[in-house]
């Protein structure tokens, strides 16, 4: 199988997954009795108390085409999705959902991407080192990583907030920047942004390190016992070279591992944002749920799903590029 074919197959697969995921988001609320959509329609019939709410709901029914048959609703839904139109928010009427997400997403990405990358790299280095060294370092690292990864991200986040943000007061406990600060490209504002960034960033990195180190340790132990390592040693290759072999080969499955753990990471990052009141989409999702802002909830869920699918697709492509076994079609890809 050539690499191009592999990319094409992966692409088609993710397209299928995209349709299933978005269809689920469409269908589930319409299947469950008492769901938010039918509740809104019912309220319209019985008369909504305030006139402004009446207007909000009317535009909702119009945007979602709720007076049309379900099949047409679905087609409209997909059409709007492809045009990036996610409807109008209830709580921030008449602000569009796309606009709200557009403002929040940069915060989230700026927090997530570096945190995941740093956590992944540090976790893999620690795990490989533990496997190679064994002995004391390994014996200490393993239980610590297990404890850290057993500690839910939100508990770690609250603890960090309390210890470093409140008790020691080293960093601001919440927010993306100070209320008094005016967003600008000045040095003071950058420092302010960074000091708010530290706690959510470190708590996300810590959780990622724990889980990645455990996986990498296992993979490296496996690689350490392979025949090619022994053979390289017998041919007089230096330890440094052999460790680089092991690291690279154990890291490959970790790329897939990273892709798969995105699903769990998303939950973690949403709540980390909420704990720190960080102005990303997690905090917006939290507010939307509290205020029954269904269009905003749906919009955020869709945007996160699409982002995760893209990230996965990208990692799969990279994996196929780095591992010759994929090209030879010898290994099964998940």
């Amino acid at each position: 199988m050539s690499y191009g074919k592999y990319v094409l197959r992966k692409g088609l697969w993710y397209l299928l997954t995209f349709f299933i995921a978005t269809t689920l988001v469409f269908i589930i609320p319409r299947l469950i009795p008492g769901n938010p959509i039918s509740a809104i329609v019912a309220q319209m019939g019985s008369g909504v108390p305030s006139e402004s709410m009446q207007r909000v709901y009317e535009s909702f029914i119009r945007d979602y085409g709720l007076d049309k048959p379900v099949v047409l609703q679905y087609i409209d839904y997909m059409k709007n999705l492809f045009h990036g139109e996610l409807g109008i928010s209830f709580s921030l009427y008449p602000k569009g959902v796309t606009e709200i997400i557009g403002e929040a997403l940069p915060w989230t990405l700026a927090l997530q991407i570096p945190a995941i990358l740093v956590g992944w790299i540090l976790g893999n280095l620690l795990g490989a080192y533990a496997a190679y060294k064994r002995g004391k370092f390994d014996k200490v690292l393993f239980p610590v990583s297990l404890l850290v990864s057993a500690m839910p991200y939100y508990v770690l986040a609250i603890l960090m907030q309390y210890i470093f943000g409140v008790y020691l007061g080293w960093f601001p406990p919440s927010g993306g920047y100070s209320m008094s600060a005016f967003p600008s490209f000045t040095f003071d504002f950058m420092v302010d942004i960074l000091s708010h960034y530290t706690l959510p960033f470190v708590s996300l990195v810590a959780v990622t390190i724990g889980s990645q180190a455990i996986g990498m340790r296992e993979m490296s132990i496996y690689e350490l016992n392979t025949d090619y390592v022994n053979y390289s040693r017998m041919l007089g290759l230096e330890d440094r070279k052999i460790v680089s072999y092991i690291f690279r080969n154990a890291m490959l499955p970790q790329i897939t591992g990273l892709a798969i753990s995105f699903g769990t990471m998303v939950g973690g990052s949403i709540i980390t944002e909420i704990v720190f009141g960080y102005p990303g989409i997690g905090t917006w999702l939290f507010n939307a749920i509290r205020q029954n802002d269904y269009p905003l909830i749906q919009g955020i869920v869709l945007v996160i799903t699409i982002t995760v699918l893209f990230a996965n697709f990208f990692l799969d492509i990279m994996y196929g590029f780095l591992d010759p076994r994929i090209k030879a079609g010898e290994m099964e890809e998940g």
């Binding site: 699903g263 998303v266 269904y294 749906q298």
Partner: peptide, 24 residues
């Protein structure tokens, strides 16, 4: 296996949210 892989990629928390929002 295809079904399993699809549901592995879609973050479970999102499906949880969509279902839970619909049940008061």
């Amino acid at each position: 296996n295809t079904i399993t892989n699809i549901f592995l990629v879609i973050p479970p928390i999102l499906i949880l949210i969509v279902i839970s929002v619909s049940i008061q």
